[in-house]
Simulated scan of single mutants.
Amino acid sequence: MPTYSASTRWYREGHCGYHLRKMKSAGRILDMLEIERPGGNMSRPGLPDLVLVQDMHGGSRVSGSLGGGRFAVTSKNGAFYLGAPNFALTSNVDIGHQMRVVAFPLAQWQNMLDEAVDGQFSFELAHVYDGMFESPIIRSALRKLWTLWAEEGGATRLLTRAAGCEILAELCRLGGAPFVPAKGGLAPWAERLVLDLMHTRLSEDISLDELATEARLSSYHFARMFKQTLGVPPRVYLTRLRMEKVCELLEHTDRPITQIAVEVGYSSNQVLSRVFSKQMRMSPSDYRRAVRDPARSYTLR
């Protein structure tokens, strides 16, 4: 059974009329929820999570206090609100609305945040807690996260931690405590160890933290240094490795696609087919037929 954040449990139990439509969780790293609720009082007790809320429609009047003082605004489509950890939130909304919620359990993020700002991190992000704000960077990261979760059939720890780092880095920048930039790429020995680990554990839900530990870096700095060295984020590189292995198995073995999916870390042949078709512009079955039929090999050029 997955272990959900305190905030997720609170929303899931339907307090204040919340209706849970979707819920995604990955290894206790963060939780994502899509919720509908009628207008009215949305206050809740203090919970040990940093909670980011996105209004999916806008047009409502929102007032309350999220940890940075009282506010009253007309909400905008796609705008964000950030609730401080361990702060009893007060909020009123005049009409029913739909929202997406991201809960960051502090226990999973505190060490990474401290390392990212040289031990100076604080959740006193008053400028971000004082009501509605907008961020194209966070909006893009969340859209990508929801899309990839749907396409790949699950919330991988690698994807989730990387997206969480990006979101928290932007929140800290907005709050006046920007992350210390990573300098340079991975050392050759670290690159070698990390890539060996990715190849060896291709079928597993390997985490960003495990890769970072191999390179003796914090998750935040590792993700940025990996991209500087390899040109793409760890998640994208891992997908490339999986696609290379799939192509090899399709070409040189008769293993069923369902078995191949498990061997490269996907939960089903349907998930593999979605990812493979997006990357290769053809289905796994079509690829297998093409590479085994010289008359059709032109389709791969």
Rank of each mutant, 00 (worst) to 15 (best):
K183M: 05
F226R: 09
T200Y: 07
L168I: 06
H199E: 11
T147A: 14
H199N: 11
K183Q: 13
C165S: 04
A162G: 13
L208D: 11
S207V: 13
L193N: 15
L197F: 12
A163F: 01
A177Y: 07
F179D: 07
F222K: 01
W149H: 11
R201P: 04
L168K: 03
E151H: 03
L174W: 05
L217V: 06
T160M: 13
G154C: 03
E214H: 02
C165T: 03
D196E: 13
L174D: 08
S219C: 06
P188W: 07
F179Y: 11
L195G: 03
M198P: 09
K144W: 11
E166I: 01
R143N: 13
S218D: 04
L208C: 12
Y220G: 00
D205Q: 10
I167P: 07
K227V: 01
A182Q: 09
G153E: 02
M198Y: 10
A141K: 08
A190L: 08
R173F: 06
R201M: 07
R216H: 09
T156D: 05
E204K: 15
M225K: 14
L208A: 12
S140R: 14
T156N: 04
T213Q: 12
T160D: 03
G184Q: 05
P178A: 08
D209S: 15
E214Q: 11
P181R: 07
L148N: 12
R201H: 15
P181F: 06
G175L: 12
S207E: 13
T147S: 14
K144H: 15
R216M: 05
L142M: 04
G153V: 02
W146T: 14
R192T: 15
H199C: 04
W149S: 09
E210Y: 11
G176M: 08
L211F: 04
D196R: 13
A223I: 00
D205Y: 06
G184L: 02
M225W: 00
E204H: 15
G184N: 05
A190T: 10
E210T: 15
R216N: 08
E152N: 02
L142F: 00
L202N: 09
A215C: 03
W146L: 14
S140N: 12
L211C: 13
H221C: 01
L195M: 09
L195D: 04
A162M: 13
D205V: 08
M198C: 12
L217T: 06
E191C: 05
F222W: 02
C165W: 05
D209E: 15
G154T: 04
T200D: 13
L193D: 14
A212I: 05
P181C: 05
L142H: 01
W189E: 14
A223R: 02
R173W: 03
A187Y: 01
T229N: 03
T200P: 01
L217H: 05
R173S: 06
T229W: 02
M225A: 07
T160Y: 03
T213R: 14
L202G: 06
M225F: 00
K183R: 11
G153I: 02
L148W: 12
Y220P: 00
R224W: 10
T229V: 02
G176K: 06
E191Y: 09
W149R: 09
T213S: 10
